[in-house]
């Protein structure tokens, strides 16, 4: 697989360390928004784990060391694109009904 790192361009997947599915943003911690145990447990441990189009965190460990979210297909291993993890949820929230990477 080749992954288009937003910083480095097209790089081989061996340079990246996969972290897992990016299905939901991290619950906000602190103040009145302290997550309920159930919210936190759901974020940490529960996945929809859809077959097909998926967003997944990768760390470009042997490159620019950025965290990126790779948009890819888990049935075909096709890679559609990648977004900086720092920008991913803000972008996704602007288009809540759209699947990213299609």
């Amino acid at each position: 697989m080749l992954i288009p790192c937003p910083h480095c361009g097209l790089r081989p997947s061996e340079e990246f360390t996969p972290k897992g599915l990016a299905e939901a943003p991290r619950p906000v911690i602190g103040g009145a928004d302290l997550p309920e145990d159930a919210t936190w447990q759901d974020y940490l441990h529960t996945r929809t784990n859809r077959a097909g189009d998926t967003d997944e965190y990768f760390h470009h460990a042997l490159g620019c060391r950025s965290w990126v979210v790779v948009h890819r297909n888990t049935l075909t291993h096709e890679v559609y694109g990648a977004t900086m993890a720092s920008e991913f949820w803000a972008q996704k929230n602007q288009q809540p009904e759209q699947e990213t990477g299609q």
Binding site: S13, E14, T17, P18, N49, F58, H77
Partner: peptide
């Protein structure tokens, strides 16, 4: 392989 997959095949690395 380390990444999420439903394909019954892996990659060369």
């Amino acid at each position: 392989d380390g990444y999420n997959s439903y394909a019954q095949r892996g990659n060369l690395p």
